[in-house]
């Protein structure tokens, strides 16, 4: 079979897995999941509930899951955001084995798949900024594509830990725009609101995805975790035509596709990849796919 025929056959195999549609559903479901306990208990959103003389049903008891992205409880098992735990250790200069137990489920889950799967599939700020992307294109606002190197966020994460130790409080937990959306809805916390405002300004008028790509310390933490991970985007060099459309579609940073497209690597190895699947959906010749394991370059 000629190369042309091979490509045609692949193209006819259909568009493949609808990553963006499924991801959007997951993002919205995760956002709503945290609201279910407070709604089921009849407390309503934004923390407006005030009790009386008698004990009332609580979100903690009304549903097998409750909490926020910093910590939640699922069927009695405590889940802790690993980066929040690191900040707490730095701020309190203390350590409790229970914290390790609490962070393991999420760290193992994201560690086994890919660190920044959190960013692509769970984080409500990413969901909002994808809306900003759409809005910007509708309003025809042009912004710079690449304003800060992607590794800056890992250094911001380290800076957050150092600052947490110096100031003795978990610094990102106090300023997190993720917390503003997630906790604002669940119990009315306004912490991090100004951060989100600053991000929206920057995203709309300065740089494309600058927060998620280069600044967010939680993304920086998960970038480091993402150096390993058994689910990866694989490239078929025989099929790739080097059109670079995948790079323009990439939600993380175009440069993480440089090595695979140049034929230097068989997978997207950078810890940044959040498995959003945009590159796979965009590729006109279906040279990209998801693979299990980490084949060598």
């Amino acid at each position: 079979m000629s190369d042309e025929a091979k490509k045609d056959q692949k193209a006819q195999a259909g568009k493949g897995f609808p990553f963006t549609v499924v991801r959007r559903i997951v993002q919205v479901l995760v956002l709503l999941l945290f609201l279910v306990p407070v709604l089921v208990a009849g407390w309503g959103l934004f923390g407006g509930m005030v009790g009386g003389d008698d004990a009332i049903a609580t979100p903690a008891e009304s549903f097998p899951f409750y909490g926020t992205l910093s910590s939640s409880t699922l069927f009695g098992i405590t889940l802790l955001d690993p980066f929040a735990v690191l900040q707490t250790i730095a701020a309190s200069k203390a350590f409790d084995p229970a914290w390790l137990l609490g962070l393991l489920p999420l760290l193992v889950l994201y560690g086994l798949i890919r660190g920044r799967v959190f960013c692509g599939w769970v984080c409500p700020v990413n969901l909002l900024l994808e809306l900003v992307d759409w809005l910007r294109s509708k309003l025809n606002i042009k912004v710079e594509e690449h304003v800060l190197p992607r590794h800056v966020k890992a250094w911001v994460a380290l800076g957050v830990l150092v600052l947490s130790a110096l100031l003795s409080f978990p610094v990102f937990e106090a300023l997190s725009p993720i917390g503003f959306i997630n906790k604002g809805l669940v119990f009315g916390s306004l912490a991090g609101g100004l951060t989100l405002l600053a991000i929206l300004l920057v995203e709309l008028f300065w740089g494309h995805r600058v927060w998620c790509r280069a600044i967010c310390p939680l993304g920086g933490f998960y970038e480091v975790v993402g150096k390993v991970g058994l689910v990866n985007v694989k490239i078929d060099h025989d099929v790739c035509i080097g059109c670079n459309k995948c790079k323009h579609a990439c939600l993380c940073d175009p440069e993480i596709l440089d090595a695979p497209v140049a034929g230097e690597d068989v997978i997207v190895r950078a810890g940044d990849c959040m498995l959003c699947g945009k590159c796979i959906e965009t590729c006109p010749v279906h040279a990209l796919s998801i693979t299990a394991g980490r084949p060598r370059a």
Partner: peptide
């Protein structure tokens, strides 16, 4: 130094 503002205490209080 320890509070991560997860809000679980808020969600657990039977008197809101």
């Amino acid at each position: 130094a320890r509070c991560i503002k997860c809000g679980k205490c808020i969600e657990a209080c039977p008197y809101a």
